[in-house]
Design a protein around this nucleic acid. Structure first.
Lengths: 330, 330
DNA sequence: TTGAAAGCGATACCAG
DNA sequence: CTGGTATCGCTTTCAA
């Protein structure tokens, strides 16, 4: 930057202003500085900018890279950022490593904003984090004071799925979901809401809920689904907490020599492969890409617009009926 | 950091040394400083560290987020970094935006190393980039002076796939591949190598190659596959340049009311869904996660070990026969 | 071994 | 509107 200032015969401060489109610089000076910048091929060091102002980086914490749903969110966010100077910094959680250290890692890098999907970080900790840096939390039905939240109407989505199965005549509907390590009434992750709603709906219909828990790995989901079908062979339908689990349920069904005529499966998320004719998984779509782009929108409102009041956005899920759900077997 | 130094009654320099595990600090001082760091909950600002030393961030450029193969690589890299101070910074290319601006974006952030998957950046430009920052290029069969490369033996992999189809009796084998915008003899992206090998093998077998090109979107692949099957109904097998394309080819086959008994499909990459019983796509695995972790390994050799001579690693692909390939129809 | 002081490359305040 | 200067938090000589 010194070089540019010298070459253009102006001060560093002036160059800085030109770069940031700040006020207080005459058109002619701007012109001159800009052309020298071009000549010298000068690019500002973001590390230095980060020390005084912004790092132009947005941190995004996701539980893992195995779920295409998270990829959808990343994609939506990346697209929303594509015309800005901001760059995504993806921090995947690995295995059992909880969200907190990952989020601290991002905060250490002075990111200008954080998108978190952690289902298991405490609200208190997030409030504290949000005092330092703008935070948008995806999925969780919190009631925050300092961060924004984007949720899907998981209650409505679950109702769509369960009612769909009921309308097909199913009476033995099992639920496959992720085991949460913590359960707090003020921090309800999506899977908890889905499970609770499922239980309520089944009881309302005079039926007995049956919930199977698994970890967030394909193997664990497959094993849980297989055990479920062994333990309760009368099961005619499985409502899986997300599409990744549903795909594993389908795998279990297929490996037992059964088809969707025997056991219907419905998921949640609508990942791309669900729409593939060979899979054709009925599911509830929650518009992952849209969630990602709204997250960026909310973050930029705080970063650029200086908003400090929390906002909440909720998306309406939609049912996607495909051939993995059929009328109940005789 | 000043606070820590004051509280511990030492100089900033000493604190800095303790943080970096540098030489020249007595055990007792280290002990004292470390405990004050813990008490004060001090965390160094990486932005400031980046100005003088490292940013502890590794930039990773990937063409898009739609392909699970790239996600595998990301995952391998993330796992390899999980016990280090380094953090991945993912920069997805979007649509037609080529790799160069994305890589510049990462370089502006003073990342300590860059992993690139760009098939279409010129070797010259990469050499220049690699003078500033360690670079590992994935997939491309370059002959670099300043950056490392990791490739899959695409020739061997293609041979596995094509020979498999030939051994099943197929004589009308089409190839579906991505259209490259540039073709240079010194920068051969994997898809080019696969196509060329396919052509060679077919000619050697006395058969006529038939290549269909598409863009890197699901729709484009689906359309190309459908057109291919219309234009050459005699086709009994499709060798797709990667699994994402193969999945779309399967979709096209299914939508035309055909099955793998009519048209065999084989892909490349072995993404997870390929192994699903409902899809059961034959493919060639190239161990994406391993590529990601090797990339980190090579990068850390340069970053920490100071290596400057280029290294090249090549992985041996393996055939995965599943039910999407069958003996040729009568 | 330790501490003091000089940068790194930008931003931002404050006179002129 | 412009230029000088202090400053951000850390690393890195260089003396002591």
């Amino acid at each position: 930057m010194d070089d540019v200032a010298r070459a253009a015969g102006v001060s560093k401060g002036a160059v800085s202003k030109v770069i940031r489109n700040a006020y207080g610089v005459s058109p002619e000076m701007r012109e001159r500085v800009e052309s020298t910048i071009r000549e010298l091929g000068y690019r500002p060091r973001i590390a230095a900018q980060a020390m005084r102002g912004s790092s132009f980086s947005i941190g995004m914490e996701i539980p893992n890279l195995d779920s295409e749903f998270f990829t959808q969110i990343m994609n939506g966010a990346a697209i929303a950022l594509s015309n800005t100077k901001y760059q995504l910094m993806i921090a995947p959680g690995l295995g059992e490593m909880s969200g907190t250290p990952v989020l601290e890692n991002l905060a250490d890098r002075q990111v200008d904003g954080i998108i978190a999907i952690s289902p298991e970080v405490t609200p208190e900790w997030l409030e504290e984090l949000a005092r330092d840096v703008p935070v948008v939390l995806l999925g969780r039905h919190d009631n925050p004071r300092n961060y924004d939240t984007i949720t899907n109407d998981d209650e409505a989505g679950t109702r769509l799925a369960v009612n769909h199965l009921l309308s097909l005549g199913h009476r033995e509907i099992a639920h496959l979901t992720l085991r949460m390590r913590t359960e707090r009434p003020d921090a309800r992750p999506p899977h908890t809401v889905r499970r609770e709603t499922y239980e309520t709906l089944l009881v309302e219909a005079g039926l007995a809920p049956s919930v199977s828990y698994c970890a967030a790995t394909s193997d664990s989901a497959y094993v849980a689904a297989t055990e479920l079908l062994h333990a309760r062979p009368q099961t005619t339908a499985i409502f899986a907490g997300n599409d990744t689990l549903a795909i594993e349920a389908l795998r279990a069904v297929a490996d037992l020599g059964l088809t969707s005529a025997d056991v219907s499966v419905i998921g949640y998320d609508d990942i791309r492969v669900a729409g593939h004719p060979l899979v054709s998984l009925s599911t509830v779509t929650q518009f992952g890409e849209t969630m990602g782009s709204i997250a960026i929108e909310l973050l930029l409102e705080r970063i650029r617009g200086g908003r400090t009041t929390p906002r909440h956005r909720e998306l309406k899920p939609e049912l996607r009926v495909r051939s993995s759900t059929t009328t109940v077997r005789a």
